[in-house]
Design a protein around this nucleic acid. Structure first.
Length: 868
RNA sequence: GGGCAGUUAGCUUAGCGGUAGAGCACCUCGUUUACACCGAGGGGGUCGGGGGUUCGAACCCCUCACUGCCCACCA
């Protein structure tokens, strides 16, 4: 007797099983195991983050891989954890502080502020981990790591020291990307260029040696004029080359209009603007480099927060940079030096976090010259590490080829403090060490870029034994947006510190977009809350639905109806199992090959075999959508729509006991396979059904991954019956016969084997009776004609409609025949085409000829048919 | 300015050289005792445009258009 409800209700099932899995410690990875290893490290989400659709996609994929590996008998480590996410977390806490206490971090002081961040972390840090559990993730939670764990932090510092000693880390005063809101330097990767509608201002600079003569300069940033220390032209430019060596009068600040030299530099583009560039070495990266080449002086006219300082002049001091721009334009206008303004579109670098234009700024920072860049390139190029999809290899290679030193210091408080100490009395004396060298020493106030800790994630999260067993990890699953931030850097770090690649495969997911193709984001409010989706459709429904629409490496158009379909699929599976339970208890060891197979059992088992092959293929290539689609088609189509309907016929009718047993065994065997194949994608419902059906006392998680069997070959006779049933159903609809109306069908057969399958055909057609007509006494026509038998629907059809139907079909057949024949008559076709194709066409033509013949006879005979 | 993807039925997509396939949505019929989160049937596509290669192109090549990403110091 079935105890299952008519609809699958995920909530209770999911909670129950997840608790059980944890209790049984199934996810624990044993480094002493003799099984072969499979390992993944989670891309650590921000510790204060909440689950997004991106996380769902990413972690579902990892879970699928881990669960499949467990079923294959591997020892699986899925190592979870979170990232301290320097800027992101600090910003959140600072914002909160401002809101609730109206204080800044400086009001609190470093120590107190850090205490607040830790509190915040304790309070909100676990959220995303709990959410991952709701999704069903099978991580080894005992090994949960945090990038600011003591041991991990220690390793970060050690790596800094090591790289310093190797001469790869150095301190320097350089142009960096400065965020005037976060008040810190950023790496190039944290700067997002955005096209902006700007204005190009044309300004006149008077030539000192030739009063009354001016050089015209085009600039988008007139507020930096006060920082100009030269004017540059291309030495090849005939318009200006004679001016090189002379001087210009810098128009601002008005109280200090210095003369600055006119220099020649081949960097200047003759075509752009007027071909004259104002050089502001303190506020532009390119200008800085020009300045270096010509030993120009540097005037820094800005404060760290983006306002102007005293050097900008009294009218500008303390003005925000954008206010200063307006004032500068106004003053130039008053001086008569502004020739014109024109609208201009350019790219401006924005701070990734604060979303304001970054300010190129000269400051003292720590830089890293990357280690093992060549080896890292080779690892991917020679496919020691394989990228899925492959095309990201090029992106990766291009970045490494043009790699720039990495600015690793951040002027933040939340993060790993730089292990460098300065002598209080002599700041130029430094020591690099984990601990303070003594009382007279003061630690560098900066912290390290978050990614400087993340790049050690695949190995410094593991102890010795774990490393020995599980490193290098099997696969990394991540988004292509962090290929530089994280993937490339981990490869270099792995090679440097473990002398070994950190992972064998990298699977890049797509980016989830909304229906309109926009990236999902909080500010747009177009991102559904995955937890809402889980409570509406179940974790399995969400997982399955998402996998089905996630093509490899392509962006994903998210549509909630896809998740509805996932839920519906789970329900379908649930009910198929319910149906089975209504027939009595199952045989966990069912083996159909021990039974005399029917056409239909044979056919289904062959299709199951195909499904298995397809699944293994999909896994090998990381084609997750194919896995979901393959199972969907097999379960819903082949198994439920066709086979279970056949089974009803076997169970209800007078068919013999042997057929019933073969059918039952096939259902049991197939369900056992379906549940196992499906388990990686939908872990909860499969675990529940595994137990409800009684396949095993234990969990499904370690049930063997199914192997293809050579026993079952395909059975075309079954397929033929299915096709003719479809045709007959069409006929029924054609005559508007309600599907519940039982009608008489006549069956004319050509081969005797069909007689054994009549009860099935009758059930599938919902026929009142199926009356056999022998070929001898049959009417010479048939209304539905497939292969070995004809199925006329008797008594309810009329001559004219049938004539029309047949005529239409005849026309279509003739047209097809013409088309095929044209090809065959083409001499070069026969010459050039492979024989198999030729044969195919010939067969098609022959079949069409037969069909045309038959149809013509039938049309003629329609007139003679007495019962119409 | 370079590079990489994508453009197939209203929507989401499969197919990647041999006469376009699925799911959802839509229309018709149906409370056939697993499932209305269901069943049966149906309509709907000149596969972004234009060239080319081929006996044959959604599929290969060229080109254009649009969309999206990435890289790049033209102020």
């Amino acid at each position: 007797m079935s105890s299952l409800s008519t609809a699958y209700e995920p909530k209770h099932v999911e909670e129950k099983w997840y608790a059980d899995w944890l209790k049984e410690n199934y996810f624990h990875a044993d480094p002493h195991s003799s099984k072969s290893a499979f390992s993944i490290v989670i891309p650590p989400p921000n510790v204060t983050g909440v689950l997004t659709m991106g996380h769902v996609l990413n972690n579902t994929i990892q879970d699928i891989l881990c669960r499949k590996a467990r079923m294959e008998g591997k020892e699986v480590l899925w190592l979870p954890g979170t990232d301290h996410a320097g800027i992101a977390t600090q910003t959140v806490v600072e914002r909160e502080l401002k809101k609730t206490e109206k204080k800044t971090r400086r009001d609190l002081g470093r120590e107190e502020f850090l205490k607040r961040v830790w509190n915040w972390k304790e309070k909100h840090g676990g959220i995303i981990i709990q959410q991952l559990k709701k999704l069903g993730c099978s991580c080894d939670w005992e090994r949960e790591r945090f990038t600011m764990d003591e041991a991990y932090s220690c390793r970060v510092a050690e790596v800094f020291i090591d790289l310093y000693q190797k001469g790869l880390i150095y301190r320097g005063k350089r142009m960096v990307n400065w965020c005037p809101i976060s008040l810190t330097a950023l790496s190039d990767e944290e700067v997002i260029p955005k096209p902006q509608q700007s204005t190009l201002y044309y300004v006149k600079y008077e030539i000192v040696e030739k009063p009354g003569t001016f050089l015209e300069i085009a600039t988008t940033r007139p507020e930096t004029i006060m920082g100009d220390t030269a004017v540059a032209v291309n030495p090849e430019d005939p318009r200006y080359k004679n001016f090189i060596g002379l001087h210009c009068r810098r128009p601002l600040p008005e109280e200090k209009q210095e003369a600055i030299s006119i220099i020649g530099d081949s960097h200047i583009d003759k075509e752009f603007g007027t071909g004259v560039l104002k050089v502001t070495p303190a506020h532009d990266k390119a200008d800085f480099e020009i300045g270096q080449r010509h030993q120009l002086s540097i005037i820094d006219i800005m404060n760290p927060n983006g306002s102007m300082n005293v050097l900008a002049g009294k009218d500008f001091q303390n003005l925000d940079r954008f206010e200063a721009r307006k004032l500068a334009v106004e003053k130039l206008k008053n001086f008569g030096l502004l020739i014109r303004e024109e609208p201009y579109q350019n790219n401006v670098g924005f701070s990734e976090r604060a979303d304001v234009p970054i300010e190129p700024r000269l400051s003292e920072q720590w830089f890293l010259k990357y280690p093992k860049t060549q080896e890292a390139r080779d690892a991917v190029r020679k496919h020691l590490i394989r990228f899925f999809p492959e095309r990201w290899e090029k992106v990766y290679d291009h970045w490494l080829e043009n790699i720039q030193d990495w600015c690793i210091s951040r002027q933040l408080w939340w993060g790993h403090r730089i292990p460098v100490w300065y002598h209080k009395k002599n700041l130029s004396e430094i020591k690099v060490s984990l601990t303070s060298p003594g009382e007279d020493w003061e630690q560098d106030s900066d912290v390290l870029d978050t990614w400087f800790s993340s790049w050690l994630w695949p190995f410094d999260t593991m102890d010795e034994k774990t490393l020995a067993k599980f490193y290098p990890t099997s696969v990394l699953v991540t988004g292509p947006d962090i290929i530089f931030f994280w993937v490339a850097r981990m490869i270099m770090a792995g090679l440097e510190y473990k002398n070994e690649i950190p992972f064998h495969d990298v699977y890049f997911t797509g980016i989830i977009r909304d229906k309109q193709g926009r990236k999902m984001s909080k500010s747009l409010g177009n991102s559904p809350d995955p937890l809402d989706l889980i409570s509406k459709y179940g974790a399995d429904g969400l997982r399955f639905g998402l996998m089905r629409i996630a093509p490899q490496g392509q962006d994903i158009r998210f549509d909630e109806t896809q998740i509805v379909e996932g839920r519906n699929f789970c329900n379908k599976l649930w009910n198929a199992c319910r149906f089975r339970l209504l027939q009595g208890s199952i045989d966990p060891q069912a083996d159909p090959s021990k039974h005399e197979l029917t056409l239909f059992t044979q056919d289904l088992l062959a299709k199951l075999n195909d499904t298995l092959t397809k699944m293994n293929c999909a896994f090998a290539g990381y084609h997750f959508n194919e896995m979901a689609q393959t199972l969907y088609d097999f379960v819903w189509g082949d198994f439920c729509d066709w086979f279970l309907e056949v089974a009803k016929a076997e169970f209800n009718s007078s068919s013999n006991e042997s057929r019933k047993q073969a059918t039952l065994a096939t259902i049991d065997y197939t369900l056992s396979h379906i549940l196992r194949l499906l388990h990686p994608l939908t872990p909860f419902i499969t675990e529940e059904l595994w137990h409800e059906l009684g396949f095993d006392q234990g969990t499904i998680q370690f049930a063997n991954w199914p192997q293809a069997s050579s026993h079952f070959s395909s059975e075309p006779k079954a397929e033929m019956i299915y096709q003719s049933v479809s045709k007959a159903r069409t006929l029924r609809t054609h005559y508007n016969i309600a599907s519940n109306k039982k009608v008489r069908w006549l069956l004319q057969i050509k081969e005797p084997w069909i007689q054994n399958e009549l009860h099935v055909i009758q059930t599938l057609l919902n026929a009142q009776t199926l009356e056999l007509i022998t070929v001898e006494n049959a009417s010479p026509m048939c209304l539905t004609d497939i292969g070995n038998f004809h199925l006329p629907l008797e008594g309810l059809i009329d001559r004219e409609t049938e004539k029309a139907r047949f005529t239409k079909e005849l026309e279509k057949a003739k047209k097809d025949w013409d088309q095929t024949q044209t090809k065959l008559n083409n001499p070069s076709f026969a010459e050039k085409v492979p024989s198999s194709v030729l044969q195919e066409h010939q067969e098609r033509a022959k079949k069409l000829e037969e069909k045309i013949d038959q149809l013509q006879t039938q049309l003629k005979n329609l007139d003679n048919l007495s019962w119409l």
